[in-house]
Amino acid sequence: MAVILTLDGETTTVEILGRKPQLRCSVEDRYYVVYETPAETDGGGWITVNGVRHRIWRIQEGERVHLKIGNRIFSVGITDPIDAARQTTRSGEIRADMPGVIVALSCEPGSNVRAGEALLTLESMKMQITLNAPRDGIVSTVHVAINQAFQKGALLVALEPEKESSPS
C-alpha cells in the first residue's frame, strides 16, 4: 500500500520500506532514509533526507499538504487510497426508496447539476425528503411530475451516463 501524491501535476507514490532505526521510503525506485526533528516553539521543524537537513513547515488541508521546505513552498495533493481505487461510473438513476408523492421539482431535462444539488422533493410517511444529485451531470429525463404518486423503486430522475473513468 503506497500513498499517491501529486506535485506540479505529476503523480508519484511514496512507499514505506522500514521504520527503524530510521524511516526508509522509496520514491520512484530510489531509497531515502528520513528522520524528522520534532517541532520546536515556533511550530516548524527539520527533516533530514539522505543526510541533507531541511527546515520545514507543514500543514495538511483536506487532501493537500502545504509545506515550506528550505526557502521553497509547495502544495502537494494526496489521493485517498479508497478514492484512488474507486473506478466505476456512478449510476445516474435516482430511484424511490419508498412509495410517495412528488411535492417539488428542482430540475428539468438538460439541467446541469452538481453533486449534492437538490433534484426533487417527495413526501412519504408525513416526511418531506429532498433527493440530491449523486454526482455532477446533466439531467436526461424527469420521469415524474408534481403531485404524482409513485411506488418503491420507481425511476424518478435520470442523469446522462458518466464517462468511464480510468482505473488508477
Binding site: 500500500m1 487510497p81 479508497i82 484512488a84 481505487a85 474507486r86 473506478q87 466505476t88 482505473p167
Partner: peptide
Amino acid sequence: DSESHAIALGR
C-alpha cells in the same frame, strides 16, 4: 469496484 478498492476498504 475492484480488488484494489476492496483492499483499501479492508485496510
